[in-house]
Design a binder for these strands. Sequence first.
DNA 1: GTGTTACCGTAACATCTGTTACGACAACTG
DNA 2: CAGTTGTCGTAACAGATGTTACGGTAACAC
Lengths: 204, 204
Amino acid sequence: MLRKRGERAIARRADHEAQQERISKAVWSILAGKGIEHLTIRAVAAEAGCTTGLVMHRFPGRKALLAHARDLLHARTRVRVERLEAEAGTPRAALRAILAQGMALSEDSAQEALVWMGFLAASVGDEELIALHRKNNRAWRDRVERLVAASAPDWEPARVRTAVFALVGATEGAAQLGCFDPASYSAATQEAMLDSLLVAYGLS
Amino acid sequence: MLRKRGERAIARRADHEAQQERISKAVWSILAGKGIEHLTIRAVAAEAGCTTGLVMHRFPGRKALLAHARDLLHARTRVRVERLEAEAGTPRAALRAILAQGMALSEDSAQEALVWMGFLAASVGDEELIALHRKNNRAWRDRVERLVAASAPDWEPARVRTAVFALVGATEGAAQLGCFDPASYSAATQEAMLDSLLVAYGLS
DNA sequence: GTGTTACCGTAACATCTGTTACGACAACTG
DNA sequence: CAGTTGTCGTAACAGATGTTACGGTAACAC
């Protein structure tokens, strides 16, 4: 078995985190492929290539499964976005890059959009999951807000905030439209929309 | 019992349509309140104040339940939007009115946004329901496109289309953000965003 | 070797799910 | 008065679902 943590080999210690990650990826896969109605413990176990026993040994229950998968996806998105931001030369380039990353431009990002929507749908009527969503979403909005403020330093805060709302809302909406009707909203169409939006707000 | 259709009284004929409507309203209610995971025949029957038997007598199955509830909501939205459009003095006023109607400005419209998201989440992995979504959504987009074209007659079609995409996407995204985090995205914030968007695109 | 401990798969459990079948009841016809 | 027909509630069914419990196995300690 794997033995990782610490310099000295701690015995009989399976790599719980790696298992949680594998299981969470299975959650994403099912959420994107079959929808939340088919997200069952058994389906997750089958997708992850393990038994329902292992799933239940790693997570206390179905809700924890959803919460962890959500947090993990958020963490992954964050590092990706931070890299994009670091690689960008200017705040405006960074802004465009991270907004584009949030749309359904590729097969992968379209699937991710479906996953986010699944999490959202699962949190209806569940204050705990809604709180998770709000926290993650506010972090996202703050990031966009910071970049907009850096891109237009002379704007008043209120103007920044409405522009951020428009950008965040439009990209989120575009991702949704794009992954349910890619024929109408192709990647090129989405990018054209984003660019026109940035031009319209004077942020291009 | 009620007897409606035809000039001659057709006997023993319950008002199926009214029952379907009542049941569909129960579907909306559950979708907005508890989420799609709790949308069961029994929950719908309880919410509608009838038995599961009646639900199954009115609809061939659960999917038909969803499809009808979705179509009915679309039809209701359409008449509401058409009235708004008719009451508006100018294409630009009509455009703003119908876009505002699609956001989460009131408690009712926030619930509706949740219902739409529930339908969307339910259609993941189901080509039949996705087709329904595409049809309805394209009709919505075409309506916005017509109004944008009327508001800016000298625009090229491509420019119209990207603006429409931005408007439709932003309002859809705003509705989603608004109903999950009303503290961050109040009605006033949403309206300010819409107005700034219309100004930015030269459609105000 | 024996004992111990972590790991995790199997199987069971109670509950819930969509759906079907049957029967009772009421309204209408003749 | 039957006889017929539409209406719809009750109860059952098979399958799925989240969760729990138990047992076996392998790695380690001694």
